[in-house]
Design a protein around this nucleic acid. Structure first.
Lengths: 217, 217
DNA sequence: AATTAAATTAAACGCACGTTTGAATTTAAC
DNA sequence: GTTAAATTCAAACGTGCGTTTAATTTAATT
């Protein structure tokens, strides 16, 4: 029943699995083409370079995720009562929607994002910023509406702390899941981690502004 | 006035600067020995391997930091009223104390830690866990005392979210500092970022436990 | 001063990587 | 059925890496 896949598709599928498991730099084209059962040179033939392959893998998810998130944020525009919790919860639907790309799409996408940020691959960061910067500023604006008492600087930093907690949880996710299961018998999945994460980041973001820079000792 | 440094010291000093700037894997022994103005082979002669050099660089900071942190946590044991905020504030003194190793010690140490976790270098993680695991469980125990209402699982996850936010803030720190300065005219330093971070992570940690795993749409 | 140990050096080794080449093969167009 | 384009393939290229070797220089010991 399964249709014969094109070489290009076989490469994309193998690449996203290996990238999500080991990261971009740690995954070689030789591993990818071996898993995909295609010739080594076909990556450069079909994509031009490894860089371009990475972007193609990311783009397949971003194409679905970003418009869906944009839509959710627009829905929130009409809410009179807004909170950080609501804003972060708005991420769940677009994330879960990635199952149409791949049953494990939400997992894979978050891990890919994590590696994309962890490895300082400048070209990728520039790509996402250029392509989807308007969604991010929309998010920033909503967070400001939810916390009008916080200064833009405070919001800026807290948003990046949030990003860090999220990204890190996903990259370390596999190891942490194993620890959690052996220590607590808790079978954690990507989505239950997200459910744990959302109150945490919302709580951090909603903290009252504090006086900073006290002196030491 | 400056004393003639040994080859071993020259390597350590060059290595920690380059590791902190670009990460462990991204820094080659050739870069290190070029900056240190020593022969390439001297790394393997004095340290045995690159792995061992990385551990030596980390150990120089951990030797100072961990006992100082242990001391701060012991002080907190005698507090009747405890909070996550207090616990996280206890990190500031030991961190600042790293100036005795290097004037930029606090900066460098946090960035090194960040890369150590970002790059999944298993041997380093195992090393720190084996060497300083007791400090970590002490920390966990205090956090439980500060939040007796939270389950160990919740505490576990939130502590790792905290780690993620901290680590990420440091690794991305350089880029974020530049953005913050150009956007807000804010001259951020490692210590002001820490001051911003502490209320955030304490706020996330102190959130009330919530029901998880609602269904989607 | 002679001997031994420690440290430094230039050079090379073996390996894995992304990429390129050019011929062989398959697919599609006419 | 022939031709032309697209694709696949095995092989090699050039580069940078961590590490090792063996000779030489420096320092310490007797």
């Amino acid at each position: 029943m399964s249709v014969k896949r094109s070489t290009k598709d076989k490469i994309i599928i193998a690449a996203e699995r290996l990238f999500a498991e080991h990261g971009f730099e740690q995954t070689s084209l030789r591993q990818i083409t071996a898993e995909a059962e295609v010739n080594l040179a076909s990556v450069n033939y079909h994509f031009g370079s490894k860089k371009a392959l990475i972007q193609a893998v990311m783009a397949r998810y971003l194409r679905h995720f970003m418009p869906a998130l944009q839509h959710q944020l627009t829905v929130l525009d009409n809410h009179s009562q807004i909170s950080s919790l609501l804003i972060f919860k708005a991420f769940r639907e677009p994330l879960h929607g990635l199952v149409v790309v791949n049953p494990k799409g939400p997992d894979i996408f978050l891990r890919l994002l994590g590696f994309a940020y962890a490895e300082i691959q400048g070209h990728l960061r520039k790509y996402t910023q250029a392509e989807f910067g308007d969604v991010l500023s929309h998010l920033m604006q909503l967070l400001h509406k939810a916390n009008p008492n916080l200064s833009p600087e405070t919001l800026f930093w807290r948003l990046h702390f949030t990003l860090g907690a999220t990204v890190f949880a996903q990259v370390s996710g596999k190891a942490l899941k194993e620890i959690a299961e052996s220590d607590f018998g808790e079978k954690a999945t990507t989505e239950t981690i997200i459910d744990r994460l959302i109150p945490y980041i919302a709580g951090g973001l909603d903290q009252p502004a504090t006086v900073i820079a006290e002196s030491h000792s």
